[in-house]
């Protein structure tokens, strides 16, 4: 009996470690900034792309939900995503705030001319520092917030069909 107890006590640590390794194999290795979900977005102030004024969190007041989308004309996946965003705007009536990330003004404008403009207003983040406040690490990225500016969901990479369904489910609840 004593002997068995000894074995169990000595073996328990390696078995525990191996078990953790087994569990770790099942894990998704993709890194996301999911810890921001449930938090309020930080105040921001950005120059507008089309007008001379500034836009900030006050431009979001009155929206039940807002999708904040980070994009740039030089980003290839943003091009693919554009049509999905237009679909969201038209079919779900969701207000989309565009944040133009490290881009040139005229390039951004041409992009919208070529592919269509899904945004109701666009802010310019010239050096990318404001995006850091939103936990952005690569574009495209999108953040869905509610009327209290609480982050409901983060989308890393382009918005796709299943994301569309998910957004639909959230805002129609």
């Amino acid at each position: 009996m004593n002997r068995i107890l000894k074995y169990i006590s000595i073996l328990s640590l390696p078995i525990f470690i191996l078990l953790i390794f087994f569990l770790a194999l099942e894990r998704e290795n993709q890194y996301t900034t999911k810890n921001l979900v449930g938090k309020k977005i930080q105040d921001f102030e950005l120059k507008s792309l089309n007008q001379e004024n500034f836009i900030n969190q006050e431009s979001l007041i009155g929206n039940n939900y807002t999708l904040i989308n980070f994009w740039a004309s030089w980003c290839a996946p943003c091009r693919e995503e554009n049509s999905a965003l237009i679909k969201i705007k038209n079919q779900l009536g969701l207000k989309i705030l565009g944040i133009n990330f490290k881009d040139k003004k005229n390039h951004a404008k041409n992009f919208l001319k070529d592919y269509g403009n899904p945004y109701y207003t666009i802010g310019i983040d010239k050096d990318g520092t404001t995006s850091v406040n939103f936990g952005v690490f690569g574009i495209p990225e999108s953040i869905l917030i509610d009327k209290n500016f609480i982050i409901l969901k983060k989308f890393i990479g382009p918005i796709e069909e299943e994301d569309f369904m998910e957004i639909k489910n959230i805002i129609n609840k």
Partner: peptide, 13 residues
């Protein structure tokens, strides 16, 4: 990378 550059700016600021 773009990310590193942005973070560098933020840290400097």
């Amino acid at each position: 990378s773009d990310f590193a550059q942005t973070i560098k700016l933020v840290v400097k600021d």
